[in-house]
Design a protein around this nucleic acid. Structure first.
Lengths: 68, 68
DNA sequence: TTGTGACTACGAGTCCGTC
DNA sequence: GGACGGACTCGTAGTCACA
């Protein structure tokens, strides 16, 4: 149910850290608000695929890689 | 921008047909409204990841496979 | 540097139809 | 069977102040 959110949360947090970004620096880079990234990394939001796509582009991965 | 919608649209339509479902039968099976499936297959909507997850489960594929 | 509650505007998601 | 429209509810997008 919400486990898709948790998978997204873990993948974003992991890949962001691997790339050496803080949440704030990454948020700027992705063109998304800082607190929104925070919410996503906690699984507190149910974002749309367009938001996932923007995050994926900022992380240079395929959008599907964030959900699996 | 909307190409993520088009990728989802094509993948859902293709996999649904391969499974031999009509839009309506598939919508019932996935627990989503029939008009919403129609909209998604036309790239007219920007669904949330929870909807993508429900569609993926109904198609027995990974959610990521619908976005790539 | 990140978490969290609260807020408004707008779009996700549902349901009624018709073609 | 599927595209498309109108109308509706409620949740998401996006932001802020503060912890």
């Amino acid at each position: 149910m919400t486990d898709i959110r948790q998978r997204l949360a873990r993948n974003v947090a992991r890949l962001r850290k691997e790339a050496g970004w803080s949440q704030e620096a990454f948020a700027d880079h992705a063109g998304i608000h800082r607190t929104y990234i925070s919410d996503i990394e906690r699984g507190a939001r149910n974002p749309t695929i367009e938001v996932v796509d923007r995050i994926a582009k900022a992380l240079r991965v395929k959008p599907g890689a964030l959900l699996d």
